[in-house]
């Protein structure tokens, strides 16, 4: 599961008010390289919950990857920024699309229900009494 998916996922257990953001607990994760597409990131960025994304990277033990506050758009999409190693857009791209959580769990913030992640697939199935 990529952090992009984690950023969009909410729990719908009965009793959860928003069920967002799910607390990420990862025991194993890996990275896979993906080609950077600035237009995709540009369309995506307004939909990203920055706070949740930063918290997720912290949970993976990458406190340096993203700054506390979202950098201004001009800085992210500056001319040629995509080719500079370590630029804001590269870091965001890396965090969203290249980090894959393999094993761990997602915890609902409202009900503390735990959704296990096995082989990169979160198990979001609810029991009958939780629907």
């Amino acid at each position: 599961m990529r952090l992009l998916t984690h950023n969009m996922l909410a729990s719908n257990v009965r009793g959860a008010t928003t069920g967002y953001p799910l607390t990420l607990e990862a025991t194993k994760w890996c990275t896979k390289e993906v080609e950077l597409n600035a237009d995709f990131i540009r369309g995506l960025l307004p939909k990203i919950d920055w706070r949740a994304l930063v918290d997720a990277t912290r949970a993976l033990g990458l406190p340096e990857l993203l700054p506390e506050e979202q950098p201004p758009e001009e800085e992210i999409f500056a001319e040629g920024a995509a080719d500079v190693e370590g630029s804001a857009i590269r870091r965001i791209h890396h965090a969203l699309l290249e980090v894959h959580v393999q094993e761990g769990s997602l915890v609902c913030p409202d009900t503390s229900r735990c959704f296990p992640i096995n082989k990169g697939i979160p198990n979001m199935m609810l029991h009958e009494d939780e629907v």
């Binding site: 599961m1 990529r2 992009l4 998916t5 697939i121 979160p122 198990n123 979001m124 199935m125």
Partner: peptide, 9 residues
Amino acid sequence: DLLLADMGQ
């Protein structure tokens, strides 16, 4: 990304 889930829920 894959999710194990029931769409009816």
